[in-house]
């Protein structure tokens, strides 16, 4: 950017409508997002630091963090492995029904979480289609939380890795083969490093989505305090008891985690773009 562009608010353009479009966009952003969101932080400032700390570190809340973060990481890891596999299969191989499979990968984006929640609960209950074959209980245990979070995070890794894999130059793999690398070595040393930024971005996106998830989890979790109660549900429980400050304090902790992840994701994407030389 030139010094002149830095000094001026905007570069000179012959196109009209800058003031109107930006003005409307900013006004709408403020009223719909920024002002309501600031309410969370302003509300937090009305409580003392010690009350805040006591609320967000009480045993029941800490147990909910452990469950939410633990299961989110676990689900994102499983999605990392299988997402990479699905992306690989969709890009590299041909098989019957591939287009349908490709389109259906986005289902968790499109299916309302409540629908996913009741469907998964019915399937993984001890008398359900899948649950009755399993030697252990899934629904109404922390494992149920894991199943729901895996479902909703499924498309992220596939959809971040897929385009990178499509753009990957086959010449690199041919060169590796030429130099005597086995297929596995080529994958480990040539393909995988190239996919790494996208894979990490997808992992972080799936993790971030899982942290805030509510609808699909509450049906399958059983929601026992200290055992299978996620943090989002705890916020709602506090709200129903008219404990607005308590709910807000927990929400601030979750928002901070979400914003930290957002920052991380932006850094990862910048890294991925540099890697791809764009």
């Amino acid at each position: 950017m030139s010094t002149r562009a830095l000094l001026l608010l905007r570069r000179h353009s012959v196109l009209p409508g800058f003031d109107l479009s930006l003005g409307f966009a900013l006004l709408y952003l403020c009223f719909v997002v920024l002002i309501p969101l600031s309410a969370v932080f302003l509300k937090t400032f009305t409580v003392s630091w010690s009350t805040f700390v006591a609320t967000v570190t009480s045993p029941r809340v800490v147990a909910s963090y452990r469950l939410t973060f633990g299961m989110s990481i676990l689900a994102a890891l499983v999605n990392g492995v299988f997402g990479l596999l699905v992306a690989w299969v969709l890009v590299r191989y041909r098989f019957a029904g591939k287009r349908v499979v490709d389109a259906l990968v986005d289902l968790p984006f499109a299916l309302p979480t409540a629908v996913a929640g009741i469907a998964l609960t019915t399937l993984y209950a001890s008398n359900g289609w899948i649950g009755k074959w399993l030697p252990f209980k899934v629904a109404y245990t922390p494992l149920g939380v894991f199943v729901a979070l895996t479902f909703i995070g499924l498309p992220f890794v596939v959809r971040t890795v897929q385009p990178v894999l499509e753009d990957l130059q086959r010449e690199l793999e041919e060169a590796a083969a030429t130099l005597g690398a086995s297929r596995l070595q080529t994958f480990a040393y040539v393909i995988f490093p190239a996919l790494m930024p996208a894979l990490l971005t997808g992992f972080a996106l799936a993790f971030a989505r899982a942290l805030g998830e509510y609808g699909s989890v509450i049906f399958i979790a059983g929601n026992m305090p200290m055992v299978s109660e996620i943090t989002s549900l705890l916020i709602i429980t506090k709200l129903e008891q008219y404990d607005y400050t308590g709910a807000t304090a927990i929400a601030v902790v979750m928002l901070m985690a979400a914003f930290a992840l957002l920052l991380l994701i932006n850094l990862l994407q910048a890294w991925a773009r540099r890697r791809q030389g764009r």
């Binding site: 952003l29 997002v33 920024l34 942290l211 805030g212 929400a251 914003f259 932006n266």
Partner: peptide, 23 residues
């Protein structure tokens, strides 16, 4: 501005409801 437009994506739905309760 681009980051702020993305903000609601990273806010948990429950918190999105909560902020309107607070207002």
């Amino acid at each position: 501005l681009l980051t702020l437009i993305d903000l609601p994506f990273s806010v948990s739905p429950v918190i999105a409801g909560l902020i309107y309760m607070l207002v």
